[in-house]
Nucleic acid binder design. Structure first.
Lengths: 348, 348
DNA sequence: TTTAGCACTCTCGATTTGAGAGTGCTAAAA
DNA sequence: TTTTAGCACTCTCAAATCGAGAGTGCTAAA
């Protein structure tokens, strides 16, 4: 990583800033004028030549201004604004909105996505907290029609999964409740393996249901993440990058194809809760993201319940705003999750 | 409504078909050539002049081919293909896919949206079944941390809502379960009003929770529809209408702003389950939809649990495919819903 | 009633052109 | 040694021009 002078860093930062705002290549004259620099355009041009030499800037063509390269953005993100903090005003607004929705668990994730999208003026994604090692928490069996039963299974971290089962023969609600009660007593707080290791049930109904519970738990553990919430796609649609090159528009498919998105999340953030990850221009790994950037973070409690959240937009993204926002939101959701589930550990 | 000759109807239909495929104004020569008509271009031109006179076709400019007008599409939809049926092959594919996911209640709605989008090559939307007159079905209280309790409320039709409550003081899980049990016995199958009319509970905990249940039920009834599932937005993004005029792109915002969408659904389909509703070009009521069309249908059981589903795309849409698909899917979901909840009526 | 023929209109793509933006280099100034 | 004024040069972009081609409407004959 080449060392830059203070002034070069400044110029790089200003070019990034100007370009993210205008989406136009920025020339030396505009820079001086717009930011009242105490330098002549010629000096700026010399510095820009250096930055271009290093590979942080490029010219779309001979007589255009400069545009940051992927490396340029990367340097900017890691060396210039990575530690930037979210303004207090924004922190307060966000906290406030969450406080309002405190009671409504179902609203948390969509709210988080909506806030992220609004703050970053880009598309956002949030996955519900999800555990790779699920623990049984509560089972409920509700009879609907004669042979059909709705099974509601609550897992660690408040995850709820529903299944419809068709029994061999009709069973009364009382009988179902009793069976659920027994299983609840036996399985509370146990992991999939622990439940699988339990002695076989004698009762046929209980046996059947327990095996369904197990497949359900297993399926949950297979999934890489919980439900995915998206927002702000329209923000990104009106960006020039997406209007012109069909290339960038291609990237949006990634958001609709959940499987692609899962793959992205899995490969981008293998590690536990931690810092914010910034993928610029697909990092050579995702062809679809060539013109885009993604800012990701994991939240929650490792191994218990964790999810991801992030922002997706053109490479020309307001990183200095987006990164602190993502970091702040990750912390906020982490607190929310740990408040909600920490009791479980004590119960055991 | 002007009466058309058989030949005029044919020509209108062919123009609609050709235009939906190519997105280019269609001229007399292309029509004759492409469909081996036993007529000369001049004859076609005369007929086209008539259709233009009536207001079913228009020319973007003097020397371009013809394009259907909104009225043209409307005539086409109501008089030419409204009764068209979905090919057996498609019916089977769809039924098969649903059969596969029969058990997994949570997968139904996303699956429906996905199928609709795939079949129509447009964007789709499905709302979860929802009841305006909810009936209490089951309550579950799960303690997490000391004072925090996750409340899971199951309502008619399998709707599940979660809330997080913070009690004044810690309460043991046993105590919570007992309270839930009592309330379940008292409230099963009751409507909001009936519950509100019940005698006051003596126990403080039960009283508090019952009032929360009531607000939750009320909030559910206020909502016009259940959760909304979208799919296939990218299908529509690559259509030329959306690439060019920012006008059409504006319409996509409608899909992200749930409130706008709710409004659309509420105003477009006030009536009960019934036929398929086709909104062409916003019908003068939705400025955002000027260049788009929406095909909507309601499914489910009126007053008990019903939802909507539909397809959204450019006005130049393959109606002859989309309309039967929407109709078929509505029937399919209706069956699914009635199978799931019909038992309730018997229980009472 | 249909159709061949024709004059006419208008768009669209290709091509040209000039203004303007921005650069790099050089030589003088600080 | 660093900064800057001056200048020649390059390249894009928007506007203007132009001709081919697509498509029409009309008329008169079949």
């Amino acid at each position: 990583m080449p060392a830059l002078t203070e002034r070069q860093r400044l110029i790089l930062a200003l070019i990034v800033r100007e370009y993210t705002e205008t989406a136009q290549p920025v020339g030396s004259a505009r820079l001086v004028e717009h930011y009242n620099l105490d330098l002549s355009t010629a000096t700026i041009r010399n510095e820009m030549a250096v930055l271009t030499e290093i590979g942080f800037l490029r010219q779309p063509h001979t007589s255009a201004g400069r545009v940051p390269t992927e490396d340029g953005y990367r340097y900017f993100v890691t060396h210039v604004i990575y530690q930037a903090d979210l303004p207090d005003a924004a922190r307060h607004t966000i906290s406030h909105q969450f406080h309002q929705a405190r009671q409504d668990v179902e609203a948390w994730m969509p709210l988080a996505a909506s806030i992220l999208a609004r703050q970053s003026h880009a598309a956002s994604l949030v996955t519900a907290p999800h555990s790779q090692r699920a623990r049984y928490k509560h089972l409920e069996l509700i009879s609907t029609q004669g042979r059909q039963v709705l099974m509601v299974l609550v897992i660690t971290g408040g995850e709820v999964s529903q299944q419809l089962l068709t029994l061999a023969e009709p069973v009364a609600q009382e009988r179902l409740s009793a069976a659920a009660n027994i299983l609840n007593n036996v399985c509370l707080g146990k992991t999939t393996e622990e439940i699988a290791a339990l002695p076989m049930r004698n009762d046929a109904l209980e046996k059947d249901i327990l095996s369904l519970v197990l497949t359900d738990l297993n399926r949950g553990e297979q999934r890489a993440s919980g439900e995915i919430f998206l927002d702000g796609l329209t923000n990104v649609l009106s960006e020039p990058e997406f209007l012109e090159s069909g290339d960038a528009r291609h990237a949006i498919r990634l958001f609709e194809e959940r499987s692609l998105l899962q793959d992205l999340l899995a490969r981008a953030m293998p590690d536990g809760v931690g810092g914010v990850q910034v993928l610029i221009g697909g990092e050579g790994k995702w062809e679809e993201l060539r013109q885009c950037s993604v800012v990701l973070a994991r939240y929650g409690i490792p191994d218990q319940a964790s999810g991801m959240l992030g922002v997706f937009g053109p490479m020309r993204m307001a990183y200095s705003r987006t990164i602190p926002t993502v970091r702040f939101m990750a912390d906020l959701l982490s607190n929310l999750v740990s408040e909600t589930i920490s009791g479980e550990e004590n119960e055991r």
